[in-house]
Design a protein around this nucleic acid. Structure first.
Length: 120
DNA sequence: ACGGTGACACCAG
DNA sequence: TCTGGTGCCACCG
């Protein structure tokens, strides 16, 4: 009983392949809201308690957290990095990684099928 | 309905 | 390159 937008975010994030990532802006774009990255973050901040969603696969634009607006995450930045490393993503000494190397790039049809198949 | 807030993104200095 | 300000849009009180 979440809003459609929340549900779409959860549905999409839930199917991000192992070892792949998406940034907030990309999620927003795939959902048809190109400038609404903030709402994506808001949705992930309100994950249901019983969620089984790979939230760690959604990262900041530069492939890391690091902007002043972000302080502490519910699970912690270090925890997220640990989880991503566990999926095979390689970080450099600055706790960054090449976003383009791991970015998930589904087609519009694929996304459409995903949203239509699971949300209703 | 309105204003404040925010797991972001982008631009300017 | 880094910091600060602005734009965006959905949610909450």
């Amino acid at each position: 009983m979440t809003t459609d937008f929340y549900q779409q975010v959860y549905t999409l994030v839930a199917v991000i392949p192992h070892g792949k990532v998406l940034n907030y802006g990309m999620v927003a774009l795939l959902l048809g809201r190109p400038r609404n990255a903030r709402a994506v973050g808001y949705a992930l901040n309100n994950l249901p308690y019983d969620h089984n969603i790979p939230w760690q696969r959604v990262v900041g634009k530069n492939g890391r957290y690091g902007r002043s607006t972000i302080r502490s995450l519910m699970h912690g930045r270090d925890q997220q990095i640990a989880l991503l490393k566990d999926e095979g993503i390689e970080f450099n000494d600055n706790q960054e990684f090449i976003l383009a190397d791991y970015l998930w790039n589904p087609s519009a049809e694929e996304v459409s099928a995903i949203l239509n198949g699971s949300s209703s």
